[in-house]
Computed example of a mutant assay.
Amino acid sequence: MLTLSLIGIGCGDPGQLTLAAVRAINAADLILIPRKGAAKADLADLRRTICEQVLDNQRARLAEFDLPVRDAEGEDYRKGVDDWHDAVAQAWSGEIARHLGDRGKVALLIWGDPSLYDSSLRIARRLQPAPTIEVVPGVTAIQALCAAHRIPLNEIAEPFLVTTGRRLRDAGWPVGIDTVVVMLDGGAAFQSLDSKGVHIWWGACLGMPDQLIMAGPLAEVGPAIVAARQEARASHGWIMDTYILRRNAPRA
């Protein structure tokens, strides 16, 4: 029997690990650590650091591998993602077969939580042979962002919407919603909005030593956020940021 554990590890701070995550890491026979190129070496380094801090299981093996690169230039976005998922599933299957065979427990340390804008569950269902899948929830970037700014996510009795930078840029502000959470934004999509009456809470590298946060009226702090994003990307070669937009000034 092959079991694959997708373990949410939060946003980079080992202190965000739950006790369930620590138990799942120590139950693994094999821990896969994907490499995403030199520009994102920090992500693999942090996974190694987490294992060094919490792993007591001496039989567990760590296996690093290069993650296939998604073709971001294709015209058909969904097909590009689908093809990439197939390639990643093949990479996972190859590493599992090489290091473990078809029996044992495999773990993948998932940034944030496996259920929120993460492809690991979809990829896991493509594996052959099909494993038993276990999920250990983790702290999401949204929770880390709210904690960093010390704010509640929702207004009293009001809904909020979680979306992507691509959707915000292409479709504009969602109808009937005053609070929008934006993830996976590669190009500061908030610049496409009418900033009047909009407040933003922004964070990058949340939970990591280089965490950045800014907040204020979008018209005032938007340019500073764009500059900070560019500087962080130039410095690290990558950036992961999340932000909340809310219409009308925040209440005291």
Results as ranks from 00 to 15, higher is better:
Leu116Ser: 09
Val135Phe: 06
Val162Thr: 15
Ile156Phe: 12
His199Trp: 10
Pro131Lys: 01
Ile133Lys: 04
His199Gly: 02
Met183Asp: 08
Ala89Met: 10
Ile110Trp: 00
Gly186Val: 03
Ile156Gly: 02
Arg167Phe: 03
Glu134Leu: 10
Ala157Arg: 11
Ala124Asp: 06
Ser119Asp: 11
Leu100Ala: 06
Arg150Ile: 14
Arg103Val: 15
Leu116Met: 14
Ser115Gln: 12
Thr164Gln: 06
Arg98Gly: 10
Asp86Thr: 15
Pro174Thr: 06
Gly112Cys: 11
Arg98Phe: 08
Phe190Cys: 01
Pro137Cys: 06
Ala87Asn: 08
Gly172Asn: 05
Val139Lys: 05
Gly197Leu: 05
Leu116Asn: 02
Ile177Thr: 10
Lys196Phe: 08
Ile96Lys: 01
Pro137Gln: 07
Val135Pro: 02
Cys146Ala: 14
Asp178Glu: 14
Ile200Glu: 00
Ala189Lys: 00
Asn154Tyr: 08
Asp102His: 10
Ile177Ala: 03
Val106Phe: 00
His85Met: 13
Asp86Leu: 10
Arg150Ser: 14
Val181Thr: 09
Pro159Ser: 14
Leu184Phe: 04
Ile123Pro: 00
Ser119Ile: 05
Asn154Asp: 12
Pro137Met: 06
Leu109Pro: 00
Thr132Leu: 11
Thr140Lys: 02
Ala171Thr: 11
Ser115Ala: 15
Arg103Gly: 13
Val139Pro: 07
His99Lys: 07
Arg167Met: 09
Ser195Thr: 14
Thr132Ile: 10
Val175Glu: 13
Val136Glu: 02
Gly104Leu: 04
Arg125Gln: 15
Arg122Leu: 13
Met183Glu: 09
Leu168Tyr: 08
Ala157Tyr: 05
Val88Phe: 12
Ile110Glu: 06
Val180Pro: 04
Ala130Val: 09
Ala189Ser: 15
Gly138Glu: 01
His99Asp: 13
Gly101Ala: 04
Val135Lys: 00
Gly104Trp: 00
Leu168Val: 12
Leu193Gln: 10
Gly138Ser: 12
Arg98Asn: 11
Ala97Asp: 13
Ser120Tyr: 00
Asp185Phe: 07
Gln191Val: 13
His149Lys: 03
Leu193Glu: 04
Val162His: 02
Leu168His: 09
Ala171Arg: 13
Arg150Gln: 15
Asp86Tyr: 03
Pro159Gly: 08
Pro114Asp: 01
Trp111Tyr: 15
Arg166Met: 06
Val182Leu: 04
Asp113Ala: 08
Leu153Ser: 04
Ala107Gly: 07
His99Leu: 10
Gly101Thr: 06
Lys196Glu: 15
Arg150Leu: 08
Gly112Arg: 05
Trp92Tyr: 15
Gly112Lys: 05
Gly172Lys: 03
Arg98Gln: 13
Arg126Tyr: 05
Ala189Tyr: 01
Arg103Ile: 14
Ala189Pro: 01
Ser119Glu: 08
Ala144Ile: 01
Val135Asp: 00
Val135Met: 04
Gly197Arg: 07
Pro152Trp: 03
Val181Asp: 01
